[in-house]
Computed example of a mutant assay.
Amino acid sequence: MKPKISIIVPIYNVEKYLSRCLDSLLLQSFKDFEIIAINDGSTDSSGCILDEYAKRHNEIIAIHKKNNGVSSARNDGLQKATGTYIGFVDPDDWIDENMYQVLYQTAEKEQADIVMCSYIREFGTHSKEKIFEVADNRKYVNEELKTNILRRLIGPIEKEVSNPEYLDAWGTVWSKLYKSELIKENKLEFVDLNEIGSNEDTLFNIQVFYHATSFVFLNQPLYHYWRMNETSVTSKYNQKLVHQFGTLYTKMEIFLQEKELKGVFQTALTNRISINTLGLGLNTISIGNKSSIIKKIIELNHILKSKHIKRSLNQFDMQHCPIVWKTFFFFAKKRIALGLFMMLTSIEFLRKTVR
């Protein structure tokens, strides 16, 4: 018998967190599932921990491979998955015991292609729920799904640009349950992070939501997103990120052209690229970048002059931004790298001290 849900867990050097993650999956109230855990060439004891769990629990399918990145690991999981639905969990995170019960029952009741729940950010000393200003059990179908959720995945518009940290709040794969046939029939896969640097979740979701006809959002925080993993790909300095984001933007532009998505979709992408100035800037000033302050400011100047960023900032409408972000984007638009550096330094300090 095929399981109702296949849960895909990509694993790389998470020996401190893996047991917590797997225990939370095994203790679910929903029991008809398989866990496809892919050890992506870990150099710590993650592989051994996984094998011990697989010996004791028939639900776990352990796969070991050479390191090739999270996208490759997830794609291997998709190939192996046999469930009616597919979910993703990152190996340093955990879930509430009723998460998949709630997502599955909602998907079946509403005949939804995709169901999403909200989540809690875990900082070790405290927790903070990600707030979505959407009613619980909100269903989107057909054109409304495209103009609201697909468009939001591509980028924010109007008042949505007022909080840049919500840029990819909708784009995660680990807060969702997908109908398996939606992914497999359309041959959808994750793009290698070596190509695009980040946002592989969002790019995958853009493709999935384009083919979906129904989606339900549950404003219930059932997933726990661990923010303290220093080995996470989101916590390191990436020297190639500007070039990789250029590739990401080109892929999104090609997608919009091929699907003939114009108008508000184009505006959304322009806004995404403009707001990504924040992420690119924080990457540049990060402690992992050992360059001098002068060289970091020069690097920021190069970012502001890059093709996609320069063009998008020229079109970016700041009217809905609060004063702090208006100041930030003023420096970015005018390519005042020193002012941008000072603001980024302040933002990074606040991110670490006020969570």
Rank of each mutant, 00 (worst) to 15 (best):
162 S>W: 00
162 S>D: 01
163 N>T: 11
163 N>M: 10
164 P>W: 01
165 E>N: 12
167 L>Y: 02
168 D>E: 11
168 D>V: 13
169 A>S: 13
170 W>V: 06
170 W>Y: 13
170 W>G: 05
172 T>Y: 06
176 K>R: 08
176 K>M: 04
176 K>F: 00
178 Y>H: 06
179 K>Y: 06
180 S>W: 02
181 E>S: 14
181 E>V: 05
181 E>I: 04
182 L>A: 08
183 I>G: 03
184 K>L: 01
184 K>V: 00
185 E>W: 02
187 K>I: 10
189 E>N: 15
189 E>D: 14
192 D>N: 04
192 D>I: 00
194 N>C: 15
194 N>D: 15
195 E>W: 09
196 I>W: 05
196 I>M: 07
196 I>D: 03
197 G>Y: 01
198 S>L: 10
199 N>L: 08
199 N>Y: 09
202 T>C: 08
207 Q>W: 01
207 Q>K: 11
209 F>N: 11
209 F>T: 13
210 Y>L: 07
211 H>E: 13
211 H>Q: 13
214 S>N: 13
214 S>L: 12
217 F>D: 07
217 F>I: 11
218 L>H: 01
220 Q>D: 06
220 Q>P: 02
221 P>H: 07
221 P>W: 05
222 L>N: 05
222 L>Y: 02
227 R>N: 07
229 N>I: 00
232 S>D: 01
234 T>K: 11
234 T>V: 06
234 T>G: 03
235 S>H: 07
236 K>Y: 08
236 K>D: 09
238 N>M: 01
238 N>L: 02
238 N>G: 03
239 Q>Y: 14
240 K>L: 10
241 L>T: 08
241 L>G: 03
243 H>W: 15
244 Q>N: 04
244 Q>W: 02
245 F>H: 06
247 T>W: 04
249 Y>P: 07
252 M>K: 14
252 M>D: 06
254 I>L: 10
256 L>A: 10
258 E>N: 15
258 E>Q: 15
260 E>W: 02
262 K>R: 14
264 V>D: 10
265 F>N: 01
266 Q>C: 11
268 A>P: 01
271 N>R: 04
275 I>F: 08
276 N>F: 12
